[in-house]
């Protein structure tokens, strides 16, 4: 086994890049040398050939979904993904050559647009795969997400116990801040990386607040607010022991805020690495449907 990591782009000496380039080059050459009586389109022999290649390619690209989930066999999924990316990219050219660069307001162009959307969403996926893993590792600092969540839970408990001994008002503030901490949630909440869904919870009032704090950093408004309230309380002069406890409480809450933003960021990265699939995959099924419609209609009107 090879003692080094290879990414999908340089898998096996970028073998699939060269294959995709060769395929594109051959198609281009054929297109350039081919001089049919009518303007180039899908109806010439070259058009049919390229169309068949493109159609088979689409089916093969779709097969990746099955291949990814079958775990026996001898081949490497990395090689399949590498081929999926490069050949999928080559598909743009082949499809355009097949159509002879003709577009119009019809089913065939709709099919083309669908296919291009799938490929472009795939490009975004590749971008995400190359960019976010490193950021995610850096953000986590060797902790697992569940460990961070556990620590947040503990910090909450400790903060509450501490606040209990200070003042009912402080206790109330801390309790509210704990209750209002929401990590994750719906797709949008995940992508926005808020560690505090106060806004989402408390309706219009919170929405207003969120707007007010819009310039505040991604780390949520409410936990920040708790700290401010605490500082106010500190300044307003209580006895020494309470002040000491309050200082500790502020430390705890700051630590929690750091952790909460980190978890939120972690969820955001994970969501970014997955969310494009929710476009890529359904659209690819639509593309296959359009492929059949395209083929049927072409032969029906023949």
């Amino acid at each position: 086994m090879n003692a080094r990591h290879e990414s999908i782009l340089n898998h096996a000496g970028s073998r699939w890049l060269w294959i995709a380039l060769a395929l594109s080059l051959v198609s281009l050459l054929a297109y350039a040398l081919h001089s049919p009586a009518v303007p180039p389109n899908g109806g010439t022999w070259l058009g049919y050939t390229l169309g068949t290649i493109a159609g088979l390619l689409i089916l093969w690209l779709m097969f990746f979904g099955i291949r990814k989930r079958s775990y026996s066999g001898t081949s490497n999924l990395r090689g399949w993904l590498s081929a999926h990316v490069y050949l999928g990219t080559a598909l743009i050219l082949i499809a355009l050559l097949h159509a002879g660069f003709q577009v119009g307001w019809n089913l065939h162009t709709f099919f083309l647009v669908l296919m291009l959307l799938v490929i472009v969403s795939g490009f975004f996926g590749v971008y995400c795969y190359l960019r976010y893993p490193t950021l995610m590792t850096r953000n986590r600092e060797s902790a697992t997400r569940s460990a961070m969540l556990e620590e947040i839970g503990e910090l909450d408990q400790n903060a509450l116990a501490l606040a209990d001994g200070i003042d009912p008002k402080v206790h109330g503030i801390v309790l509210r801040s704990i209750q209002n901490t929401r990590l994750g949630g719906g797709v949008l909440a995940q992508l926005r990386a808020r560690d505090d869904s106060d806004a989402a919870l408390a309706g219009i009032r919170a929405a207003l607040e969120a707007r007010e704090k819009s310039q505040a950093a991604a780390g949520g408004a409410k936990s920040g607010q708790t700290i401010f309230a605490m500082v106010d309380f500190l300044a307003s002069g209580t006895n020494d022991r309470q002040a000491e406890a309050l200082r500790k409480l502020i430390d705890l809450l700051s630590r929690k805020k750091v952790l909460a933003s980190r978890v939120a960021r972690d969820i955001q990265y994970q969501a970014l690495m997955e969310v494009w699939l929710y476009i890529h995959v359904p659209l690819s099924f639509a593309t296959v449907a359009a492929l059949f419609a395209h083929v049927v209609s072409v032969f029906f009107y023949w």
Binding site: A3, S7, S72, T74, N76, R78, W80, L81
Partner: peptide, 20 residues
């Protein structure tokens, strides 16, 4: 018992997993 070797390495789509 798998012909292709460790499934974890084979199933990694991005080449992040290796065994050495």
């Amino acid at each position: 018992d798998e012909k292709g070797g460790p499934a974890c390495v084979r199933a990694c789509p991005t080449g992040a997993a290796i065994r050495i």
